[in-house]
Structures are given as C-alpha cells and as structure tokens.
Amino acid sequence: MATGGRRGAAAAPLLVAVAALLLGAAGHLYPGEVCPGMDIRNNLTRLHELENCSVIEGHLQILLMFKTRPEDFRDLSFPKLIMITDYLLLFRVYGLESLKDLFPNLTVIRGSRLFFNYALVIFEMVHLKELGLYNLMNITRGSVRIEKNNELCYLATIDWSRILDSVEDNYIVLNKDDNEECGDICPGTAKGKTNCPATVINGQFVERCWTHSHCQKVCPTICKSHGCTAEGLCCHSECLGNCSQPDDPTKCVACRNFYLDGRCVETCPPPYYHFQDWRCVNFSFCQDLHHKCKNSRRQGCHQYVIHNNKCIPECPSGYTMNSSNLLCTPCLGPCPKVCHLLEGEKTIDSVTSAQELRGCTVINGSLIINIRGGNNLAAELEANLGLIEEISGYLKIRRSYALVSLSFFRKLRLIRGETLEIGNYSFYALDNQNLRQLWDWSKHNLTITQGKLFFHYNPKLCLSEIHKMEEVSGTKGRQERNDIALKTNGDQASCENELLKFSYIRTSFDKI
C-alpha cells in the first residue's frame, strides 16, 4: 500500500482533458527560462521544448504516446526543470519506465491550478516501474492521483506527508504495488545497510526511497516546507523545498512566496507586481503582455491589467481597466465587458449561442446573426445582446428569417469595421425574408467608422429604411451602385405612401 494514499474509496472516473512563447529569463536562482504550460502528445517531438525550461508557468501534460519505446527515452533528460506552477499529468506514455532521468531536479509542483483537485496525476502508464522524482520536495496545493499503472512499484516507500501538507485526498490505487509483488529495495538494503531515512506512518517504520538508488530526502521537522541542505541544516524561511546553503534567500532552489532578481522575498516591493503567484514583474512586463494579447485571437491570451499590486489576466467583477495605466478602477454604474472572439468572429444561430455573449459591452471581433427560429426570440436576444455598444469588426445579418427588427441591439452605437466582410463591408444584410426595420432612427444613433453597407434580398425592408441608415451611420456616399439592390429590397412591402385627393359631386333626387 502506498504510504499516505487512500484505498478502496469510491472515486469519480478520471477524465483526461485534452506555445513556446518565453516569458522571460528567471535569473540567477533558476538555471534556465520560464516556459508556458505545455500539452505534449502523440510523439516526442515537442518534448524537446523543455530543454531550457527551469519553470513551467502553467501545467505540463505528457500523454497518448503509443509508439514510443524505452530506448526512445534513454537520452532524454531535462535537468534544468525545477518547478511547475500548476500540475504534472502523465497518461498512456508507452515505453517510459521512470522519471528519474527525465526530470531529475523537479523540486516543486505548486498546484496553482489543479487537474480535478490533483497536482500530480500518473494514470495508465503501462510501462512505468517507478516514479523516480527523487528531488520532489513540495506539492504546495492539491493532491496526488496514481492509478492503474500495472508495473509501478516504489510507492509504499514514499512518505507523501513530507511532500504535501495533507495526504487525506491522495488516491493511489490499482498499481502493481497493490499486489505486494514489488519487493522494493532501498539503497544499501541488499548489503544489509540502512542508507535512507525511515519514518513512521500508520504504525509502520519504513525506509523512504524513490528507487533502488535514490533515497527520499527527509528534512528535520523544524525546517517545515522550506527544505534543508545535504547536511540537514534548514533553508531560509522564504525558500521552498530545498537550498544549497542554509538561511540564505539567494540560495533557495525555489521560493515559498515570490522570486525577485535572484532572491526569494515575502512580497513584491514597489515598483514590482505579483505575477502568477510566484514571481515579481515590473510595469513594462505587464504592459507588454497586455499589448501582445490586445489584437491576438490565441486562446488563453489575456490583456493583463494591474489590481491590488498584482498583474492579473482581467479586472475583477465591479472594476474596469483604465487604459492609460492598466489599473483596475471601480465602475460607475454597470461595468464594461470586452469579449474577445477566439477566431475573430462568432455566429449567433440560437439563443444558446447568444447567451455566451451575455453582459458583453464591447465585441472584439465580428458578429454573424443567422437565426431561423426560436421561442420568445426578441426578448431572449435583447437579454443577451442588448448591452453590446461596440463591435470592432463587422455585423452580418444573414438568412435570419425569424427577425423582424434589429432593435434587440438596443445599445449598439459603434461598428468600427477594423475587419470587413469580403474585404469591403462593415454591415452586411443578406436574404432576411421578414426583416422590416433596422432601428427606430428617431431614437437610435449608430456610427460606422469604416467599410460599406450591403443589402440584398431583404424583400420587406424598404429602401427608405436603408437610406436612413446611410445618413445616420455616416456611410452615405461610400456605397457603390450594386451594394444596395434596388429590386430585391422592399419588393414585397408597401414602401411608397402617396396622399390621394378626392373630389365629389353631391346629387339628390331633384338636383344634379
């Protein structure tokens, strides 16, 4: 039985969820670079991206490699990797027998973001014989899940209580170790020597080791999670996991709180800001991140802002960003909400898709409305799209047979046209069989910064309504002859009103 693990408890099935942008060198404390989270699957090609990484700022997932063999891993080693800020997950990587050479110096898994409450997941690794993470000293947050690894031993010899604050939620089941077939031998045991430290858990006094050649490092209890030197002297209180010299914040392997210019500090002093819960960055760093993602459509890219001495992905609820200094300031009234469309555009074809934009005031991208039916549609669209004030790209209304009016965009005031449909149009209306009105132009103002209007096959939309939009939106004169079809717009509506004058002759039985 794995020490510190839980057996036999019912657990939810383990679901495996399925960018080499360097964020800056980590400095003297770390020998390499800070790398983003990685999802490495199918083959070993991307694994080489770990070569210079000291910190993975995010998670590391290595999974679904069915053609790899043990010899493929023999020359692979990433000794610079010290810390993973989120979680480490391995799933069905064939041929991998140990992690001792792959990650010989991995010391800390912070667990800032977890995989279903777990910071370390080893699942269905069919050839893994031992973990071998002999320098792993601290899992700051989260638990361990090690399950269905039929060859995995050296679990009962690990004292997880020396690595985690609590072992109650560890789930370590259905491994070879369960069948008591392992016969784990710690260093020196074969020669009758006791080389590794022994600890007591559940009444068992057991030597602690990761492999037959690597003991588990056990520091004096007084050192807590700070770690200790090879001689057993406690590291500085700002260290986490390990250090090369005692009581020196510049000799830590990793930091308990924050890293700044080669030393570990309790908090980031001005003019620095907390970033990702582990390091200090200056304003320029946060500003660069903001600008890199301002026009990016890459998933996970955030326009970072500053709030409460932190550089964070977005302002919290009730705050909006001051564009001059990136500071989050309290909103006066309802907060603006910028919604970034991942692929640059979004099609609204149902109430469900409209709900995804609920509360958005600025759309960074283009909207395509293609709704053919739905219950209580006008009210639903207004509830979900009615706060949109600005669209950076274009607005396209296409084959939306259920629409009679666009009044559900009740606050839309600006279409920038930074991206144009077919390279020309910022407003595009095609084949809307029941569209009769755009907006009530006596109450609604709309500016279209650039781009043209396109109207074709809107049989109940009168040309007068379209011409009014040209005047109000500032697009009059931009359109070419064929942009607004004269014969297919309003051709099934009563669009022309003329005053009919009647004269009559009164007659009676005795007068003409």
Rank of each mutant, 00 (worst) to 15 (best):
N150I: 15
R263W: 15
Y304D: 04
S98R: 06
L327Y: 15
E97Y: 10
I56F: 00
N325L: 10
L50P: 01
H302E: 09
I163D: 00
F66N: 01
K100R: 11
G192I: 03
Q245V: 13
K224C: 05
P36K: 09
L102K: 00
C235G: 01
L29A: 15
K80D: 02
Y273A: 13
L240E: 06
R69L: 09
G203K: 14
V34M: 14
P330I: 13
T329V: 10
T45C: 15
T194V: 09
L164R: 03
G132N: 14
Y304I: 12
K67M: 06
I306L: 07
H274N: 08
N322W: 05
G95W: 12
G203H: 06
Y94V: 15
Q61Y: 05
D101S: 06
C331S: 02
L289P: 03
D75I: 14
D72G: 13
Q276G: 11
F91V: 00
Y319A: 13
M125K: 00
G132M: 01
P334V: 13
G183N: 11
F285Q: 08
Y304R: 05
G32I: 15
S143T: 05
A119N: 03
P313Q: 12
P70F: 06
R297A: 10
I40T: 13
N175T: 03
Y118P: 00
C53S: 01
S77N: 11
E147V: 11
E168W: 13
G188S: 11
I222A: 11
C215T: 01
F205M: 06
L120I: 15
C186L: 02
V144Y: 01
I172L: 07
L240W: 00
Q216V: 01
G300Q: 13
E130K: 10
L102A: 05
N43V: 06
N308M: 13
E124T: 03
T229P: 11
R110V: 07
V305L: 09
V55D: 00
Q299R: 05
D288K: 07
Q216A: 02
C209S: 00
V200F: 09
D277N: 11
Y259P: 01
W278V: 04
P104Q: 02
P271G: 09
L131G: 02
L76E: 02
E57Y: 11
W160G: 01
A198D: 08
C235D: 01
Q276A: 12
E181P: 05
G188Q: 08
E147A: 14
D277T: 05
C215H: 01
S112T: 08
L88R: 01
N195D: 14
C335N: 03
S166K: 02
D247F: 07
D75M: 14
L76T: 11
C223F: 01
H302A: 13
G192Q: 14
P36D: 04
T194I: 10
F103S: 00
F115M: 05
E151L: 06
N179Q: 08
C234T: 01
P197R: 11
T320A: 11
L233M: 04
F66Q: 02
D177F: 13
S323L: 10
T229I: 07
N282D: 03
L44W: 09
I185L: 09
S244F: 15
K148G: 04
L50Y: 10
D178Q: 07
G232S: 08
I139H: 00
T157G: 06
N42Q: 05
W160E: 00
Y134G: 06
H236Q: 04
I185M: 06
V218K: 06
A119M: 01
Q204C: 03
L63I: 04
V144P: 03
H214N: 09
N202K: 04
E51H: 10
E57H: 13
G142A: 02
E314G: 09
L120V: 04
K310P: 02
K310F: 14
K191Y: 14
C301F: 11
T140D: 11
T194L: 13
A230T: 07
N295C: 10
I185G: 09
C182W: 03
A230F: 10
L102Q: 01
E71N: 13
F258W: 07
D184S: 10
E124P: 00
N150S: 08
I122D: 00
L50F: 09
T250C: 07
R297K: 11
C223Q: 00
I40G: 00
G192C: 08
N195F: 11
E168S: 15
V121P: 01
N170P: 04
L88Q: 01
R74G: 15
M137W: 06
E207V: 09
E124I: 01
P313D: 09
L89F: 03
A190L: 09
D75Q: 07
C335F: 04
L89M: 15
Y30L: 09
F283H: 05
N52I: 04
R256T: 11
P313S: 10
G132R: 00
H290Y: 09
T85I: 05
G37L: 05
L99T: 07
I312R: 03
N242F: 08
H214W: 07
C228N: 03
R297S: 08
P31C: 14
C182K: 01
C186S: 00
K129T: 09
V167C: 15
C153N: 00
A230M: 06
C331N: 10
L327G: 09
E238D: 12
I158E: 01
D178L: 08
R162S: 07
L44G: 06
L76M: 05
S244L: 13
D184H: 11
C328L: 00
R162P: 10
T320D: 09
K217M: 12
L155N: 01
H48Q: 14
S244H: 13
N308Q: 13
N135Y: 03
I172P: 08
W160A: 00
K193L: 03
G318A: 09
V167R: 02
R110W: 07
R41H: 03
T267L: 04
G227K: 07
I40Q: 02
N257L: 06
C243R: 00
R110S: 12
G192W: 05
V121C: 15
G142D: 02
C280T: 00
M65P: 02
D248R: 04
F275M: 09
D101E: 12
S296M: 08
V265Y: 05
T250S: 09
H48K: 12
N322T: 07
S166Y: 09
E238C: 03
Y94F: 08
V55Y: 10
P249I: 06
P36C: 03
L164I: 05
I185Q: 03
E33S: 08
P269M: 07
F258M: 05
V144C: 10
V200S: 15
P334M: 04
N42I: 02
T85K: 09
D159I: 05
V265A: 09
H59Y: 14
G58R: 00
L136S: 00
T140V: 08
G192F: 08
Y259C: 08
E49L: 09
E130F: 12
T157L: 03
P316A: 05
T320Q: 11
G32L: 13
N257R: 10
G132A: 10
F205P: 04
V93L: 15
N257G: 06
P220W: 01
Y154N: 07
P197C: 08
G58N: 00
C215Y: 05
I312Q: 13
Q245M: 12
L260Q: 04
F275H: 08
D165W: 09
Y273W: 15
L60S: 00
Q287L: 14
L44N: 10
L90M: 13
S225K: 05
Y87C: 00
S237A: 07
P330R: 15
N52G: 04
C186W: 02
M137Y: 05
L90T: 13
E147F: 09
P70V: 14
L131F: 02
L81K: 00
P104T: 02
N322S: 07
S143M: 08
K67H: 11
I185E: 03
H59F: 09
G241W: 01
R298C: 08
M321P: 14
